[in-house]
Design a protein around this nucleic acid. Structure first.
Length: 535
RNA sequence: GCCCCCGUAGCUCAGUGGAUAGAGCGUCGGUUUCCUAAACCGUGCGUCGCAGGUUCGAUUCCUGCCGGGGGCGCCA
């Protein structure tokens, strides 16, 4: 049940009945911050008064009178307040109905949306160079990208998760040469990789191995392990080398040339990206005959459309300038502008020993994602990355995260989940059988804590859809924390299995706990964080 | 110089154009004969960076400025 929709249609009817000709496309119904303003509120009178040529307050009064004449289900009263707000006061029965709705949907169905049905999206994330381990910053994209994918899936989209492996080119060569040099007991070449891991890996490398081939495999394996430990999945690993070898890159160059977007200047081959809003044209093939990173990347993105109608790239802030040229190239190839979306995440600053740690692979020491996961745990690492918006730079003090991992919000949420499971176990131990929900009197749930918890649960479907639209998984984190807080409050103030609790009330509360289990399970699942049954 | 992100409580951060802007941490104090105290409750004098604008209404949208971060390569 969607109470918003319920109130919206009631308002629509009232608008028609008051013969108001101006009907807005969207009627905003929201939860007021102040409980004195009722359970739900709408600004419709304020929003449409001018166009309707009436005073807001007067219009609100007219609508309220209509609604009060025949009260919609669950609505106890409709009042006008302030400049022209219409406030709805609802009977707790709407929350009791929410509980039945949550239980009926279960962990598989609750808070799912159909808005993505029949649509597909391709999400490329992390895509770190296969020349070393993932650093802590990559962890942010792993957590974010995977959770975003889960959100899309929950909203009905067919999702493909991709990782683009840049397994050819100059960096790959330098990487191989650095490994070979360390193997021979020498220093890496000019511009090579200086990280400690190069020496460690070189030791493991067989003498007869091809340093590039072996190194790429080693790095890929290392990255795959860490990503798996963080619960970040991938459906498709795209190889740049494979793409080049297949001739797809040459083909795309010919296509762009035939379309008239390619020209040669000073020995280099250029693409007229300025025709599609880029600030300058870009080089496809350097004057030394080597393609830039850009050219195979165009071919790659073009191909990706066979694996999703909407392409989403998750990129770090340092790649911001890259977006307009890719967008331009894809439009040249006939892909509508809205079918390519680059989500730019701000950087992660890692503090270790109170100092900023280097994140560059080529420079010496760096904080690896692996370290973070091993020190803090996968759940802590993952939720830490999903605490805040990717529009903000995130500072992770490794020592603090590890030292205070017990105070990490993830435990607050997981503990709520553990309590719910603990309750079910105790109920079984005490031979308290859970009766079918149809036979339980939910109207006994009247305590403020019970109603608050139900209100939070009722918000999850809306939160999921909003978070998907905003590409903001952290909104699910915020919801999960609120849900846990509501559960802890309920737990503290509302005894369930105690001897002095009425048997009917006990049943109702057990079902509320069960609904909470479902909500937390969905929330944590979207975040890729485990939901332990005991702690 | 141009482009992107940020600026909200001591700190870290939420915040869908709405009414009295919220959490966590930290501070100080309280709660357990009872289902897990990894919990709960109380305790906050905030120029929502500054100045304009749009609006019935702006922390939210627009413009300019200030401050912090990132980008402006025939690197990836």
């Amino acid at each position: 049940m969607d109470v918003r929709q319920h109130l919206r249609s009631a308002l629509e009817t009232a608008l028609v009945d008051t013969a108001l000709e101006v009907c807005p496309e969207t009627i905003s119904v929201e939860r007021p911050a102040n409980p004195e303003h009722g359970d739900w509120s709408t600004n419709i009178a304020l929003a449409t008064a001018k166009r309707a040529g009436r005073k807001p307050r007067e219009l609100a009064e007219a609508l309220a009178a209509r609604l009060n004449a025949v009260l919609p289900t669950h609505v106890e009263s409709v009042e006008v307040a302030g400049a022209g707000f219409i406030n709805f006061c609802l009977s707790p029965s709407w929350l009791h109905e929410t509980l039945r709705f949550v239980v009926a949907a279960g962990t598989q169905g609750f808070a799912r949306s159909r808005i993505g049905a029949g649509r597909s999206v391709n999400i490329e994330y992390v895509s770190a160079n296969p020349t070393g381990p993932l650093h802590a910053g990559h962890g942010r994209w792993a957590a974010y990208g995977d959770s975003l994918a889960r959100l899309f899936e929950h909203c009905g989209y067919a999702v493909t998760r991709e990782f683009y492996v840049n397994d050819r080119g100059k960096q790959t060569q330098l990487f191989g040469e650095s490994l070979a040099a360390r193997k021979a007991g020498e220093d890496p070449p000019e511009g090579g990789y200086l990280g400690e891991y190069i020496s460690e890996w070189a030791e493991d490398m067989p003498a007869d191995a091809d340093p590039v081939e072996w190194g790429l495999q080693r790095a890929h394996q290392d990255q795959l392990e860490v990503l798996a430990s963080m619960n970040a999945r991938f459906d498709y690993w795209a190889s740049e080398k494979g793409l080049v070898d297949s001739g797809a890159v040459e083909e795309i160059l010919n296509t762009l040339d035939e379309l008239g977007y390619v020209y040669i200047l000073e020995g280099a081959t250029w693409l007229r990206t300025t025709q599609f809003g880029d600030s300058q044209d870009r080089v496809l093939i350097k004057s030394d005959g080597q393609p830039t990173y850009f050219l195979p990347d165009i071919a790659y993105h073009h191909q990706k459309y066979s694996r999703g109608e909407l392409l989403i790239d998750i990129l770090g802030a340092d790649h911001h300038g890259y977006v307009s040229r890719m967008s331009a190239a894809l439009q040249m190839l006939g892909h509508p502008a809205g079918h390519y979306e680059a989500l730019i995440g701000q950087h992660v600053t890692v503090l270790q020993d109170g100092r900023k740690a280097r994140l560059a692979k080529r420079a010496g020491k760096m904080v690896q994602a692996r370290e973070l996961v091993e020190l803090a745990g996968a759940d802590v690492a993952r939720l830490t990355f999903l605490l805040q918006s990717i529009d903000t730079t995130q500072t992770i003090d490794v020592d603090l995260v590890v030292a205070e991992s017990n105070e990490n919000p993830v435990y607050y949420v997981q503990y709520a989940n553990a309590r719910v499971h603990s309750l079910a176990r105790r109920a079984r131990q005490r031979q308290v059988a859970l009766r079918p929900l149809q036979k339980v009197d939910l109207s006994l749930l009247t305590h403020q804590r019970e109603l608050a918890l139900l209100r939070v649960l009722s918000e999850l479907p809306n939160t999921v859809e909003r978070a998907m639209r905003a590409r903001a998984p952290h909104q699910v984190t915020t919801w999960s924390r609120e849900c846990a807080a509501a559960l802890h409050g309920f737990w503290h103030d509302c005894p369930i299995l105690r001897d002095d609790v009425d048997e009917q009330l006990c049943q109702a509360r057990l079902w509320l706990s069960e609904a909470t289990r479902i909500g937390l399970s969905v929330g944590l699942g979207l975040l890729g964080v485990s939901a332990p049954e005991s702690m």
